[in-house]
Design a protein around this nucleic acid. Structure first.
Length: 554
RNA sequence: GCGCCCAUAGCUCAGCUGGAUAGAGCACCAGACUACGAAUCUGGGGGCCGCAGGUUCGAAUCCUGCUGGGCGCACCA
């Protein structure tokens, strides 16, 4: 609808310039927006005011010229008016709105899907936690945001892949192996000191018990140089399997798990650095290798090979992103914790040095979650192993409530997550508000069916009977869905969908309380059933994008 | 000290890339089930959009400075 009006205004402008009523000028971009106030019509454009300064003309005069050339072959616009400083307000013909519901019926579960992605390949990389322990609540938010962004992009016609980067090459993994070994010795009765940066969670002890039961004293007898790498691999594998299970229970499935270690195979990282050095992006100083990230706006150059000869995480990350682009992704999206924001200029520098545009890498920052129980903070300490796991949250509050809660705010704003509120099945909890609307509609349709009333097909429904303002508001909200999805996709902001759902559910609940859907009036009943089923379709489609169920009963 | 993010109702937050009278939920107060599901709805109070300037037809939104909070500033990941 919006696009239709945009086109009309654009064409009117072209006609004006051709006829000379308006001097030639470039129109920045026709902007049409829904009005907040019904007195301003249904849509409005500020085109005339945008043009005023360029053409040095009174905006109202420009508006008059535009309206004179406005062609409306479909007869959609009932009338226009010029208001305020130069807005053009469009009043849509009454009864036209309902015709747009045809698309909801025709497209059904696919309503809201778009194709502007045009099959371009996008990778979303998220979670990517070291397999040194189970996922905790802090990972959950990034997991849901990444998953929802991927789903929204897929709905817009992008070919999306979800990827998890396994940091299995660094010190953290080494610490994991040392921690397991230390617990093995402890269980054996030794009093070996626990490593300083070790992982103290109970799960390490369980791993140690399992290792001892399976292979006896082997890890205790062999040299540390043998035992630690072996225990690291084993523990990492077991923990990663657990992570995959937890994610699956949370409704998240990755297309690929990418191991950092594979980047080092065949000297991959070293060769890449050599190539970059040949291009002048890398130099040697003080026995280390430096990446000239300042050439791309970073505040200082960054080390890629340390004095001890070990590559930094950044070195591997450049290689990883090179790998991503070589796999043919047009755009790569990284979901990071907000505490890594300082890393962005560096990574953008890396991408540009590799020869790709800065925009090819987009980073979503996800703020930390403040975990509460009944308003009181829950202590979280990764080091000590005292933390609430993702699994516990899913078990306690449920997958739907957990996912919805993490999507209710912009990802870069702080989020309080209260376990008690999230699991309470009450009006404190928006997920149930939305799901209830869906379940309610299912109930209505069931009641109607029991009375032998079927939902009519589009051509048979007397949609002209939908004359109430609430009905118009519902219809307008339904047909806005594509815009909302497009906005969420372009801005990588899935929270827009939860706000949209709350709005739609609110309109429906209000409508429901005021008006009877199934009545004695056959035509009206049919029209309302048609409308209500469209609401059901949209609720289900959007909930589906967010990975939240749309229950028929609650 | 330098950089990034944030500051909107009592609380938690939206505000569609500059639009018309700034919104929602919670909390508080008063109401609505003999009707398709009350996990719902209706009404009400509540605001210097942190402060001060600037840009223009027009600013919560863009620019500068200040105040206050978060986070970065590794040869950690």
């Amino acid at each position: 609808m919006k696009k239709r009006l945009e086109r009309m205004v654009g064409e009117a402008l072209a006609a004006c310039m051709e006829k000379g009523t308006l001097a030639a000028a470039e129109l920045p971009a026709v902007e049409i927006e829904l009005t907040k106030d019904a007195a301003h019509g249904d849509y409005a454009t500020n085109a005339a005011m945008m043009l005023a300064s360029r053409l040095k003309m009174n905006p109202r005069r420009i508006a008059e010229a535009l309206i004179a050339e406005l062609a409306d072959p479909g007869g959609v616009v009932a009338r226009t008016e010029i208001a305020g400083p130069g807005f053009i307000n469009f009043f849509i013909r009454e009864g036209f709105w309902a015709t747009l519901l045809e698309a909801v019926e025709r497209e059904g579960a696919g309503y809201g899907r778009l194709d502007f992605g045009a099959g371009k390949r996008v990778q979303v990389e998220f979670v990517s936690a070291n397999p040194t322990g189970p996922l905790h609540i802090g990972h959950a938010r990034g997991a849901v945001v990444g998953d929802a962004v991927a789903a929204v992009l897929a709905a817009c016609g992008y070919a999306v892949e979800r990827e998890y980067y396994i940091n299995d090459a660094g010190n953290q993994m080494h610490n994991l192996g040392r921690s397991v070994l230390a617990r093995c010795r402890e269980l054996d009765g030794g009093d070996a000191p626990f490593p300083e940066n070790g992982y103290q969670g109970e799960y390490i002890r369980e791993l140690a018990r399992e290792v001892l039961a399976r292979e006896g004293r082997r890890c205790l007898d062999e040299a540390e140089g043998e035992a630690i790498p072996r225990l690291t691999d084993h523990a990492g594998g077991v923990i990663l399997d657990g992570i995959k299970d937890d994610l699956k229970a949370f409704g998240i499935v990755f297309d690929r798990y990418f191991s950092e270690r594979t980047l080092y195979e065949n000297d991959g990282v070293a060769k890449l650095l050599a190539a970059l050095e040949a291009q002048g992006f890398i130099y040697r100083e003080d026995g280390t290798l430096w990446f000239r990230t300042t050439a791309f706006g970073d505040e200082k150059d960054r080390v890629v090979i340390r004095q001890n000869g070990e590559p930094t995480y950044f070195a591997a990350d450049i290689a990883y992103h090179k790998n991503k682009f070589e796999r043919g992704f047009d755009t790569v999206i990284d979901v990071w914790g907000a505490d890594h924001h300082g890393y962005i200029p560096r990574m953008h520098a890396g991408v540009q040095a590799l020869g790709y545009p800065k925009e090819a890498l987009r980073v979503i920052l996800v703020q930390l979650v403040n975990l509460l129980r009944d308003g009181k903070p829950v202590a979280m300490s990764t080091r000590s192993g005292e933390f609430v796991t993702l699994r516990q949250v899913v078990d306690e509050v449920g997958r739907d409530a957990a996912r919805y809660n993490f999507l209710m705010r912009r990802s870069d704003s702080h989020l309080d997550f209260d376990l008690e509120v999230a699991k309470r099945q009450s009006n404190d909890n928006p997920v149930y508000y939305v799901q209830y609307a869906h379940a309610r509609i299912c109930g209505i349709l069931k009641t109607a069916a029991e009375k032998g009333v079927a939902v009519p097909a589009y051509g048979q429904a007397a949609l002209e009977r939908l004359t109430l303002p609430e009905e118009a508001a519902l219809i307008k909200t339904l047909i806005r869905l594509p815009e909302v999805i497009e906005g969420a996709a372009r801005n990588l902001e899935p929270h827009r969908l939860t706000f949209y759902l709350n709005e739609l559910a609110g309109l429906f609940h209000s409508y429901y309380n005021k008006n009877k859907v199934v009545s004695e009036d056959g035509d009206l009943t049919g029209a309302r059933l048609f409308l209500v089923r469209a609401v059901q379709t949209v609720l289900a489609n959007v909930l589906g994008l967010l990975g939240v169920s749309a229950p028929e009963r609650m």
